[in-house]
């Protein structure tokens, strides 16, 4: 036992050194060798990542990008559910090979992990009961729900300092708090809110009661997350998504999930996947 204790103590002291070095391998080679790509995705954030109740399969925009990348690498895709709060540790500790989890690129995050080029562009807005919020002023001093560890949480604290921020493990719980009147608004990226609103519209009990007012507080470019310094892997992923743009597959995916007559109507506008540096500079 004494030895075990010593081991734990030594581990605590040495955690630093071992942390990076053990993990800074070549993921691309690794993935090919084991024949599976393990991706961290959201499991209840349609249209990006969710489990289809009938087939029990993962579906969504993020999920399809991973499937495309896995296909390109010639391996099977496997999915591991992550939340906004635990996704970065999951990646850094090597539990997943890549993150496709509605993650905004930021300079702070870019110091910890590497991002792909922007594969989705959106902005942070609010989901509210119809007519309750017309401008940021209406939110002052009120409770606003969001998810732990998200950029949404950090942005809204800056945009409405007087608000009381309630952070949940993930967005649907915040939406539930909104339905029950525990918060006046839920804030995050419009694309996620659109998915939640779509769900609310489908339910007769909440149909027509919620909206996303035109109040934007930031631009949110999404990137696929990979471990820092994993150069080969990052390049492979970037090449793959650029190719998807060129072949029209990326646009097709967008239309599949965000079509104007679908559950989550959104406009792609002028956005294209390019070798950009949005968010990280």
């Amino acid at each position: 036992m004494a030895r075990k204790t010593a081991l734990v103590i030594a581990a605590a002291a040495l955690v630093a050194a071992m942390f990076g070095s053990a993990l800074a391998a070549d993921t691309l080679a690794d993935v090919k060798k084991k024949g599976v790509l393990v991706a961290g995705v959201k499991d209840s954030t349609p249209p990006f990542g969710s489990v289809d109740p009938n087939t029990k399969e993962y579906v969504g925009y993020d999920v399809d990008f991973i499937r495309a990348i896995a296909k390109k690498a010639g391996v099977k895709a496997e999915f591991q559910p992550v939340t906004s709060a635990n996704r970065m540790p999951m990646l850094q500790e090597g539990r997943v090979d890549i993150l496709a989890a509605t993650m905004t690129k930021t300079p702070e995050r870019a110091k910890q992990i590497d991002f792909s080029y922007t594969y989705f562009l959106t902005g942070q807005k609010f989901l509210t009961k119809v007519g309750t919020v017309k401008s940021l002023k209406d939110l002052e001093g009120k409770a606003i729900g969001t998810a732990k560890g998200s950029t949404s949480e950090q942005n809204v604290a800056k945009a409405v300092p007087s608000a009381k921020i309630l952070s949940f493990d993930d967005y649907p719980q915040a939406v539930l708090a909104l339905i029950q009147g525990k918060v006046i608004a839920v804030t995050t990226d419009e694309s996620i809110l659109a998915g939640q609103l779509g769900k609310l519209e489908k339910n007769p009990a909440s149909k027509g009661k919620f909206e996303i007012p035109d109040v934007q507080i930031s631009e949110e470019p999404y990137g696929l997350g990979m471990r820092k310094g994993d150069t080969n892997w990052v390049k492979f992923v970037n090449d793959t998504i650029l190719e998807m743009e060129k072949s029209g597959e990326a646009k097709k995916l967008f239309d599949k999930y965000f079509a104007p007559d679908g559950d989550n109507p959104m406009k792609r506008g002028t956005f294209k996947i390019t070798a950009d540096e949005r968010g990280i500079k």
Binding site: V15, F19, P89, E93, R95
Partner: peptide
């Protein structure tokens, strides 16, 4: 454990 185990035993340990 979530934090320390991967550092001790390397990556790939399922949650």
């Amino acid at each position: 454990m979530f934090f320390l185990l991967p550092a001790l035993f390397g990556k790939g340990m399922p949650a």
